[in-house]
Amino acid sequence: MTPASDFLLRVEDLHKCFGEQPVLTGVTLDVPRGSVFSVLGPSGAGKSVLLKCVAGVEVPDRGRISFDGRPLASENPAADADFRRRCSFLFQSNALFDSLTALENVALPLEQTTDLPERDIRARSLEALRQLELDRFADRHPGQLSGGMQKRLALARAIVTRPELVFFDEPTAGLDPLRRNAVFAMIARYQRQFGFTALVVTHDVPEALLVSDRVALLEHGRIGFCGAPAEFSASADPRVAEFRDSPAALERALTGIRAGEIPNRDEP
């Protein structure tokens, strides 16, 4: 059994409703230090809400979140401030400031949260850009960069503060398969290089299984499965199988259509 101190982040019995609509109904998960932890699940399962609750963007209705052994709560601002200093968030939309250049975007968290001199901020920001192979585009605005470069720029901004935990909210949403592979490769590569813990929310099963150390399946607001990628691949749990084998199910459904047999909708 893994000792409690080896978990950087622990979430226990997390609940969140929007109006009368329950989104999270008792989520519990432990994220090991230095790992890539992916939360899988269909669209609308509450993955992004879970990430935002953990990151402090949304306030959960109930539950307990601990970071590095310390509980996070609104009545504990010191722990909350420490948590924010030690984590970063990579948004689905990248959330880059389009009025700032690439260098200014990366420098922003250092400028606003540290007392480093201007020279050091510039050096560290350029270093982050160089590590993400964007130093040639330091003076460009995000709108002048391609989608993949914007994703790398967002990652450069996320790692410039040298965080211990990085949240990835649907990092491959809307990308073509080649770019999707590139983004997952980037997450795996930089996670190894910088040693941060990555909590990734995605519905790209094959890619997530390749880069993750642990995966969890979120379904109907609860964790339906949590384990190693190999366990996920071998699981006979019907909820896991349905999500994991969805391409095969599509293939089965298409077989009849290709053969000219239009299935009767009323038949089960």
Binding site: A81, R84, F91, S93, A95, F97, P109, T161
Partner: peptide, 16 residues
């Protein structure tokens, strides 16, 4: 627009 494109939330997550 900054609210719409999550730039304001991004600031909060950075501790700004």
């Amino acid at each position: 627009i900054q609210r719409n494109s999550e730039q304001i939330v991004a600031l909060e997550t950075m501790g700004v």
